[in-house]
Design a protein around this nucleic acid. Structure first.
Lengths: 195, 195
DNA sequence: AGGCTGCGTTCGTCAAACCGAACACACACC
DNA sequence: GGTGTGTGTTCGGTTTGACGAACGCAGCCT
């Protein structure tokens, strides 16, 4: 078929990682110590269906996939998001510093969640005086902030919390929120988690 | 059709959150500022299909779903994992401190990933003198460490890295790794990400 | 007005995913 | 050995999801 390029459609890009899914399916089933027959029975799918899926063939319906996830107690994400480990160091003066309206607020992205994504990790440096207000991000985002040094008012704009070093706060990022340094050289870690 | 209940199958448990998926689909399309027709065209699916999906009907095939995710630039996880926001504060002296062999090493769990899980967030406090060596966790775990204060040797046991305040390192957690404070009152944030 | 181009929805048709049964194989038990 | 129960695979038949065309509607231009 000559490796056809999707000329018309723009995207069409990444095909569904059926092999990967099949592998996970097999592995998780083994981990649970269940037979294909048993899993199929519990999930309420024909074992023929499961058999084909585990051999990497087919194009399962969401219902089928979901039933299997529930049965195997696997978050659907694990089936679809492929894993990839590695080692990476970013020095204090490194990191892609994000554009910031205020000069006394710096955010360095340390770990951007690659496509197939979940969380970004930022290092924040802020000086007192200016309030860093963030507009709501997309729904489902949760932000975690751990204050490393200094002092800051953090959290939902509606109900900010004053943090001292070591304090931790988590709040929904899809609501207006802020970060205001109360002392010089206030530093924090921000984890933005897009579920 | 009589709303037949799958009496035989044991599970039948959590149904597929089609309404939620539909909502996300609609919302993300709006966010991208694209028409239903356009998205359907780019994704290579019939617009009738997309229309039905966006109205919460149907049971899409993985291929279809995937194509839409790619087109809308949405990690499949976002479609399937339901969101749940909330606010939570943990003070510096709070948090469930984990049992630790060494007295000069403390780890407080700040945010345990709930079932359907992805990441745990810890606050580390360590004093110099003892090396905190961790046995490998399960495969696919990635640990992120950001040093808040002090100085530490962190990372894979095979190739540790010396971190100063603000430095960041990420490494696979399924290999032997360590955390060794080099200065008094060394503090860090540890994010354990189980993919 | 009239025609046109975009939108999103609804309607038949066809291919394919799902199912159940039949199958080949392995192992334990009588 | 024969029989039984387990495994995972392959085979027709049926349900159903995806497709394309037709539809109703709104805005815009001639």
């Amino acid at each position: 078929m000559a490796q056809e390029v999707p000329a018309t459609a723009s995207a069409a890009s990444a095909k569904v990682p059926m092999d990967s899914i099949a592998a996970v399916l097999r592995r998780e089933r083994g981990r649970a110590g269940l037979s294909l027959t048993e899993v199929a029975r519990r999930a309420g799918v024909a074992k023929s269906t499961l058999s084909q899926l585990e051999s990497g063939n087919g194009n399962p319906s969401l219902e089928t996939l979901w039933a299997l996830c529930v049965t195997l107690d696997v978050p659907p994400s694990r089936l679809l998001d492929p894993p990839r480990p590695r080692v990476q160091v970013i020095r204090a003066d490194e990191g892609v510093t994000l554009a910031s309206a205020q000069a006394d607020y710096q955010a360095a992205m340390l770990s951007a969640s690659p496509p197939g994504a979940r969380r970004d990790i930022y290092r924040l440096s802020a000086e007192p005086g200016a309030v860093r207000a963030s507009d709501p991000h997309m729904p489902g985002v949760v932000e975690h902030v751990l204050l490393a040094s200094g002092r800051a008012r953090v959290g939902l704009a509606a109900e900010p919390v004053e943090l001292r070093p070591g304090d931790y706060v988590a709040y929904p990022g899809d609501l207006p929120h802020l970060f205001e340094a109360l002392e010089p050289s206030t530093r924090a870690v921000l984890i933005s988690e897009h579920n």
